[in-house]
């Protein structure tokens, strides 16, 4: 929520923003056709996946102040729904993504409906438990390989020409851009003001006419669906999916760390945080072990929460004042 919006320079209209985003996607797509090295697409996919996850998390966590620790669960459910449907019916990727999003949206609806009446802490604890339980359930799901995991065959070429990884990259590009556009639209709409009111004082929000429960549940569904969509292409990206890789703790931590590092108040924060942190990790992966890498993310996150609670955007804005 940009406080100065109503008075100072008029903000870009929502339509204009969508157009710019579409143009950006087009430019990246055209540029991508020139790239022949698949590593670029592998690395880019990871960055975009985190942009998507961080943005999805922030719609609920940043705008409404409800902390979801269960990102890994939504993400993994998306991945496993996609694996199962692919094995069963062999559907095309866009359909798998929609299915993953739908199932995760439904789980968001159930979780939200049951726990969002309470103080936010209880919602958070429930999401944390959800992650652990889902892992137990999927470990028992033999159809998708259970504890042993399952191999997924990645086609060698994508439907647009170029490698399949390149296709996955464009898919993720589209999803991430879509998520950012949705987040910004939510932020600038009535819902954005309602969510900010909820975050600041829920009883006062109710008294001001905000249907807090409905808004929170709707936001949880949206956020969960986007996380599910983020997970759906994963099986094709990794080609071998097992519970430990799907329920990767790194995913859960990064998704929270990125918005907090970038700043949770606006759509740009999670994007900045995701790009920065995933590039740092990608770079560090070469030199240090993955455990040290994770430690780094954890420490950066704690550092930002304690010292710069409004993230990088907060620091920048503070400087400008």
């Amino acid at each position: 929520m940009t406080g100065d919006a109503p008075l100072s320079r008029p903000p870009m209209g929502t339509l204009a923003f969508w157009c710019w985003a579409a143009a950006f996607t087009g430019v990246v797509y055209l540029a991508g056709r020139w790239v022949t090295n698949d590593y670029v697409f592998f690395a880019g996919y990871i960055v975009l996946q985190y942009v998507l996850l961080a943005t999805a998390w922030n719609i609920l966590g940043g705008y409404a102040g409800y902390v979801n620790f269960g990102t890994a669960a939504f993400f993994a459910i998306g991945a496993y729904i996609s694996t199962a449907l692919n094995k069963w019916l062999g559907l095309p990727l866009p359909v798998l993504i929609l299915a993953g999003a739908a199932v995760c949206g439904l789980i968001g609806l159930l979780m939200g409906g049951l726990t969002l009446k309470l103080q936010g802490v209880f919602f958070s604890i429930a999401t944390l438990a959800l992650a652990i339980v889902t892992q137990a359930l999927i470990t028992n799901w033999e159809y998708v390989g259970g504890a042993a995991g399952a191999y997924v065959i990645r086609p060698s070429r994508g439907p647009l020409g170029g490698s399949y990884v390149e296709y996955l990259f464009y898919t993720m590009l589209l999803l991430a851009t879509l998520a950012v556009c949705i987040a910004r639209t939510v932020e600038r709409s009535a819902a954005g003001y309602g969510l900010a009111a909820i975050r600041d004082d829920e009883a006062a929000a109710e008294a001001a006419g905000v249907p807090t429960m409905k808004l929170k549940v709707a936001t949880t569904v949206l956020s969960g669906a986007l996380m599910g969509a983020a997970g759906a292409p994963l099986p094709f990206f990794v080609t071998y999916l097992d519970p430990p890789s799907a329920f990767n703790l790194a995913v859960a931590v990064n998704t929270i760390a990125m918005p907090l590092v970038g700043g949770t108040a606006t759509w740009i924060g999670p994007v900045i945080g995701a790009v920065l942190l995933s590039i740092v990790q990608e770079a560090a992966m070469v030199t240090i072990s993955s455990a040290v890498n994770l430690l780094l993310v954890g420490l950066i996150m704690i550092g930002f929460i304690t010292l710069a609670p409004n993230g990088i955007m907060g620091l920048l804005r503070g400087r400008r004042r």
């Binding site: 966590g61 102040g65 902390v67 620790f69 936010g120 802490v121 958070s124 975050r199 703790l249 931590v253 929270i256 760390a257 907090l260 949770t264 455990a291 040290v292 994770l294 430690l295 954890g298 420490l299 996150m301 704690i302 929460i305 304690t306 609670p309």
Partner: peptide, 30 residues
């Protein structure tokens, strides 16, 4: 010092403890 005295302990405080949980685990592994 970081949360309770500032009065905004909901979101930030939770994330803080989540960070501690995570860091403790990783340090033990290391």
């Amino acid at each position: 010092a970081c949360f309770e005295s500032r009065g905004d302990n909901a979101l930030q405080g939770l994330a803080f403890f989540f960070g501690i949980l995570f860091v403790t685990e990783v340090v033990l592994i290391l």
